[in-house]
Measured scan of single mutants.
Amino acid sequence: NKFNKEQQWATYEILNLPNLNEEQRKAFIDSLKDDPSQSANLLAEAKKLNDAQA
């Protein structure tokens, strides 16, 4: 299913963002699990935070 693929991709991407700390990473991944339909939005937020902390 589409959300499952998006969720897996977003999880992979978030795990590989270098500037997030473990707590932030875990929070994003927990949110992905809670609502896979928000995968794209959550990934965008994670990338923004990652860039802000660069």
Rank of each mutant, 00 (worst) to 15 (best):
A52W: 12
A10K: 02
Q38L: 08
K47N: 06
Y12E: 15
K48W: 13
S39T: 05
N21Y: 10
P36H: 04
S39A: 11
D30T: 06
A27M: 10
S39P: 04
D35N: 14
L32N: 01
K5F: 03
Q8T: 04
E45N: 11
A40P: 05
L15V: 06
D51M: 10
A44R: 06
F28H: 01
E22M: 07
E45F: 06
P36F: 05
Q7V: 15
A52T: 11
N50K: 01
Q24V: 05
E23L: 11
K48Q: 12
S31W: 10
L32E: 00
E45P: 00
K33M: 14
D30L: 06
P18M: 05
F28D: 00
P36S: 04
N4L: 14
E6V: 04
L20Y: 00
L15T: 14
E13R: 05
E45R: 05
A27H: 11
I29M: 10
L42H: 08
T11Y: 15
F3R: 15
Q53T: 08
K26E: 09
N4M: 06
N21H: 11
I14R: 00
W9T: 08
A27G: 07
L42D: 01
D30V: 08
Q53G: 07
S39H: 14
N16H: 14
A40E: 06
Q24S: 04
D51T: 10
D34L: 14
N1Q: 04
L43A: 13
A40V: 13
P18F: 06
N21R: 12
T11Q: 15
E22P: 13
K2H: 15
N16P: 00
R25W: 02
Q38H: 06
L43K: 02
Q7I: 13
E13D: 04
L49F: 07
Q8S: 04
I29E: 03
Q24E: 03
E6K: 02
E22R: 09
A46V: 02
A52K: 13
A10V: 11
L32I: 13
A46Y: 02
A46N: 00
L43Y: 11
I14S: 01
N16R: 11
Y12D: 14
Q24Y: 02
Q24D: 04
A40K: 09
F28V: 02
F3M: 15
T11K: 08
E23G: 05
E6N: 03
A27I: 12
N50S: 10
K5G: 13
T11W: 15
A46P: 00
N1I: 04
A27P: 03
D34N: 13
F3Q: 15
L42E: 02
F3V: 15
N1K: 08
D30S: 08
D35H: 13
N1R: 03
L32A: 04
D34W: 12
L49K: 05
Q7K: 02
N50F: 01
F28L: 06
N4V: 10
A46I: 01
L15S: 13
I14T: 01
N41Y: 12
S37G: 08
A10R: 02
L32Y: 02
K26H: 11
Q38K: 09
F3L: 15
E23A: 12
T11A: 15
A54D: 06
N19V: 02
N1V: 03
L20R: 00
K26Q: 12
D35A: 13
E13Y: 05
L15A: 08
D51Y: 08
E45G: 05
N4R: 02
K33H: 09
E22H: 10
R25S: 04
N19R: 04
N41M: 10
N21V: 05
A52L: 11
P18N: 05
E13Q: 10
D34Q: 14
E45W: 05
K48H: 05
A46E: 00
I14P: 01
A40M: 14
N1W: 00
A27R: 11
A52P: 03
E23V: 12
A52R: 13
F28E: 00
K33E: 12
L17W: 01
A10Q: 02
S39Y: 15
E22K: 14
D51R: 06
A40Q: 10
L15D: 08
L43V: 14
N50T: 01
D51L: 13
E6H: 04
N16K: 08
A54W: 07
L32K: 00
Q8P: 01
N50D: 05
K47Y: 10
A40Y: 10
Y12T: 12
Q8M: 12
A52F: 11
N41Q: 12
L43P: 00
S31E: 10
A46T: 00
Q38N: 13
Q8G: 03
A52Q: 12
K26V: 08
P36I: 06
Q7N: 03
E23I: 14
D51N: 10
E22G: 10
Q53P: 04
R25K: 14
S37R: 07
K33F: 15
E22Q: 12
I29R: 02
A27V: 12
Q8H: 03
N19F: 09
K48T: 10
N4S: 08
E45S: 14
L49W: 06
N4Q: 15
L49N: 03
Q8V: 07
T11D: 03
D30W: 04
E13P: 01
D35R: 06
K33V: 15
R25M: 04
K26L: 09
A27Y: 14
K5D: 15
Q8D: 04
A54R: 11
L20V: 02
A54H: 12
L49E: 03
A46W: 01
S39N: 05
N50G: 03
S37I: 06
W9H: 14
D35F: 13
